[in-house]
Design a protein around this nucleic acid. Structure first.
Lengths: 180, 180
DNA sequence: CGAAACATTGACCGCACTCAAGGCTGGTGG
DNA sequence: CCACCAGCCTTGAGTGCGGTCAATGTTTCG
């Protein structure tokens, strides 16, 4: 998780990095920016000498940029429900696994964020996030028994609720989408 | 101006590029993203073969990223007045010129954006931007006789109104800050 | 002079925030 | 084993900031 903190305690989470994502120091070396883990994490250092790694780095920074700009549009112009729907979709892309026994369009994944984390990511409050998640649940679009494990029951409707436009904003990395 | 458009017409301006800023195609080649000029503009193409230009490019992309992340924090966590104050400061940094005859802390510059452009940049509406600008004007923090020419009369107070934290987010370019 | 685009201002409204109460879960110590 | 506690989630009631709608003023330009 990459986040920024304002002097008075307001926090904005800038990005959630799932398996396979790359992180460059230039992102965290800005004043008031920090990176933290939200779950047990395996980190690898990339050497910059390797030209392959260098292009990999440029790709990673450009991905961060595209995600940051898309996120800005979301924060500036989307409603609470659209934001929460989008957060679920993005986390599903990054952490989701297609599971045997689920219908084709169903995805299940573990939220590594609390409601308040989601709020600080989406520019909302924890209460609003909770209300939106439960609204989606009542509409049978998603499901959860414990607050941590989210099941997407109707992907198409969820994407519609997110407001449509969702360009591919995941790492094209070689990492398989397996994660506890 | 770099902006994104949603299917239903909502627009988010992602960044305003003043003199000396660099723009890479990867920013505009994303779906629904466009770049437009708001004033007569002089463009130069940079060759990538030159290793100097290459590092220049990486710098420019990293600047875009830092600005985008800072902007996300602004959109997600700041009030209307803070946003408008920040917009004035950022435009002053990019377009402002210290003018003879003005007090030390005074800066004057031309807004190349309408109130609605500012609104689409700051995630607000034109009416709210107008109200905030006039509030700042009533407090003698800024001044304007025509809507286009903005004078910063009290920089310190304006920075306070913007919510404080404002890391250097301008191009360290070689361009002098002269602009019509 | 007239039209179009932009800016300003006011009145009202609604979405998301605030505040508060209550429930659930997991961890700790008697 | 259970009482207690802390943290998180959920839900409701009420508020307020910023949005919406509308009227008017201003500037520009043909």
């Amino acid at each position: 998780m990459v986040s920024q903190m304002l002097a008075d305690g307001r926090r904005q989470i800038l990005d959630i990095l799932g398996p396979g994502r790359l992180l460059h120091a230039s992102v965290t070396d800005v004043a008031d920016s920090t990176a933290e883990t939200l779950s047990p994490t395996h980190l690898e250092r990339r050497k910059l000498l390797d030209p392959l790694a260098s292009s990999e780095l440029v790709e990673a920074v450009l991905l961060m940029l595209r995600r940051a700009q898309h996120h800005a549009t979301l924060l500036g112009r989307k409603t609470a429900l659209e934001r929460v729907a989008y957060a679920v979709l993005d986390l599903a892309d990054q952490f989701g696994a297609r599971v045997r026994g689920l219908a084709y369009a169903e995805v299940i994944f573990r939220l590594h964020l609390t409601r308040n984390d989601l709020a600080d990511w989406m520019g909302l409050t924890g209460e609003t996030v909770s209300r939106c998640l439960n609204a989606l649940k009542r509409q049978e679009i998603i499901g959860f028994d414990t607050p941590e494990i989210i099941l997407i029951k109707n992907l198409k409707t969820l994407e519609a609720a997110a407001g449509g436009d969702r360009p591919s904003l995941v790492a094209r990395g070689t990492h398989p989408a397996t994660h506890p």
